[in-house]
Structure formats: structure tokens, C-alpha cells
Simulated assay, not measured.
Amino acid sequence: MKIITLVLAAIIAVTSVSAIAHGGRTDKQGCHNDKKAGTRHCH
């Protein structure tokens, strides 16, 4: 039972990354303009 719980926790931890940060200039709120999409997004 402990092994299953540990494996499940490891899978959740690895797959729970929802955003990957990338380089680029950001403002004081951590946001920047996406010139290709014409939108603004934050990290």
C-alpha cells in the first residue's frame, strides 16, 4: 500500500507542472506581451 501511494504521489508531482517559464522581459508583475499572439500573459 505504501509503495502504491509513493508511486502515485511521484506521478502527480511530475505531471502537475502547468507552465514552463521561458526567457523574456517581464514587468514588475511578471507579465509580458506575446507579440505573435497579440496578447499579454503572466508567469
Rank of each mutant, 00 (worst) to 15 (best):
K35Q: 11
A19C: 15
S18A: 13
T39N: 15
R25V: 15
T15L: 13
V17M: 07
K35M: 09
L6S: 00
S18Q: 11
V17W: 01
T5C: 04
T15Q: 04
K35W: 15
I11F: 00
A13M: 05
A21W: 11
I12E: 02
A9W: 02
L8M: 03
A9C: 02
H41Y: 14
I4N: 06
A10Y: 03
V17L: 08
L6Y: 10
A19T: 14
I3L: 09
M1K: 07
I20Q: 01
G30A: 08
M1H: 11
V17C: 06
G24Q: 06
K36V: 14
A19D: 08
A19N: 11
T5V: 07
A19M: 10
A10V: 00
I20K: 01
A9G: 03
S16L: 07
T5L: 11
H22V: 15
D27R: 08
I20L: 06
I3W: 05
R25W: 14
A13N: 08
G23S: 15
V7R: 03
T39M: 12
H41D: 11
K36M: 10
A19E: 08
K28H: 11
S18G: 14
Q29L: 11
G38K: 03
M1R: 05
I3R: 06
V17S: 00
A21V: 13
T5M: 10
V7T: 05
K35T: 10
R40Q: 11
G24A: 11
L6F: 12
R25M: 11
K28L: 15
L6P: 00
M1A: 10
M1E: 14
D27I: 13
T26I: 11
S18Y: 03
